[in-house]
């Protein structure tokens, strides 16, 4: 049976519906971006008109880092909940009794997280740009914010970082035994790619369009590999029973040795008495 976009769509639709009704997720979605909006705005407004170009530039780079934390962190928390949450609710077993493939389930869940997280990140980014243009007193800040490499980096990195966090989060989720552990590990998982972004922001690497594209490509490849790994980690049997099918049964214990199977009395149908 082939990959089905109808099934993927059904999962996605359900995910978005559930998010809308989940106070925890709505609150996280609302509060986290706000927090990440305030910090950049304060930075931008505090840079006076007389501040030198290099200082302004550095501040703006720091701002970009902050703007990318939201799309990296938010999905990690939500994705980590995805599989364990279903398992705890008891909704995973019915899902797995349908023809749904694991790739469809995982992609449906991932897209369900990416779309709101990246959407919010773009909105926050746009608000920062508009506010800078309207109110920033330092002209270098405005031009640094409007730099092609910065805009490209934000547009590319937001979904790719989100992708990273989601796959790691779902991967942990598919193996973790309870929600809280999954979420804590998930949050930690967003740190490695952010560290690289931080290096760029703090001029350890000079930001440029080329660097942004190269780093984006690396992230893209990492996302695809992670998706494969997570799909492989998704073990139906383990999810249902908490044990893997792979584990070989050991002899002894309750298992009687071969050949000791009890005689089973059976009665057949009417045609053979």
């Amino acid at each position: 049976m082939k990959f089905s976009f109808i099934r993927l769509g059904a999962v996605l639709h359900k995910e978005l519906r559930e998010y809308r009704r989940s106070p925890f997720i709505v609150l996280t979605m609302a509060v986290l971006p706000l927090v990440f909006l305030i910090e950049p705005l304060i930075t931008i407004f505090r840079i006076g008109p007389s501040v030198a170009a290099s200082t302004a530039d550095r501040a703006v780079s720091g701002t970009f880092l902050v703007l990318l934390i939201a799309p990296a962190l938010l999905p990690a928390v939500i994705a980590a909940y995805s599989v364990v949450g279903e398992r705890e609710q008891g909704t995973l077993e019915p899902l797995l009794t349908t023809p749904l493939r694991r790739e469809e389930l995982l992609l449906g869940k991932a897209i369900g997280v990416v779309v709101p997280a990246v959407g919010l990140a773009y909105v926050v980014f746009a608000v920062v740009q508009v506010c800078a243009r309207l109110f920033a007193s330092n002209t270098y800040v405005v031009s640094a914010l409007g730099q092609g490499s910065h805009i490209l980096a934000e547009i590319l990195f937001a979904p790719l970082l989100a992708g990273w966090s989601i796959w790691v989060g779902i991967g942990i989720s598919a193996r973790a035994s309870d929600v809280r552990v999954a979420q804590q590990l998930g949050t930690l998982s967003s740190i490695p790619p952010l560290a690289v972004v931080a290096l760029v922001s703090f001029d350890v690497f000079t930001p440029s369009v080329t660097l942004a594209v190269v780093f984006a490509l690396i992230l893209l490849v990492a996302d695809v590999i992670l998706f494969r790994v997570v799909s492989a980690l998704f073990d139906r049997e383990r999810l249902i029973t908490g044990a893997s099918a792979q584990r070989a049964p050991s002899a002894g214990g309750q298992v009687p040795p071969a050949g000791t199977v009890r005689r089973i009395p059976r009665i057949g149908g009417s045609d053979d008495g």
Binding site: A10, E18, T98
Partner: peptide, 14 residues
């Protein structure tokens, strides 16, 4: 958190 119909819509989709 989903209604009866919404629960069934998911599975009809699947």
């Amino acid at each position: 958190r989903l209604t009866v119909t919404e629960n069934l819509q998911l599975f009809a989709g699947l």
